[in-house]
Amino acid sequence: MAFKWLGVIFIGLLVGLYEATIRTFLPIPLHYLTFLLPFLVLFVVIERTQYAYALAASAGLMMDLYSIECPGLQIWRLLLIVAILDATAKSVLTNRSIYATTALIIFAGILDFVTSFAVGTFFRWYASCPRIDFTWRDMGLTLILETAVCAVLFFVGVRVFKRLTGAR
């Protein structure tokens, strides 16, 4: 059991490291490739929300420690996103299919943009942080790639689970 928690926290730290450093160097379109929200959504879909919280906290910690110039309150933002996703999944989703996962990842992506924009606007007013550069193209490309990554992880996860449990 402890190994599972350690594994999740380790994945969270790696994902946070990718978001904070590697991704900032990547050119377009690789720059839009992100793994954080797909992992969070998948943990919510398979009803392992506690792992989603642990991953959000560890990834958010790395992103906050190495944020450029202004804080993004990543830990709290990501924890709130997981809480909202969990509540939405429990009240709205009727199954755990790839279609439900796709709907949830799109919702998560929109939540991510809205909360980032809100936090960025607050710090622009409070701490004279630079203007937020938001374009519909950025949001669209990020959502498309997040959905694709989530779908790939979903299918890989199902295959691995079936192989491990011998289920058909």
Binding site: L17, Y18, T21, I22, R23, T24, F25, L26, P27, L30
Partner: peptide
């Protein structure tokens, strides 16, 4: 990881 990112870029 920054070195990896820079090499990929």
């Amino acid at each position: 990881s920054a070195a990896v990112g820079f090499e990929v870029a």
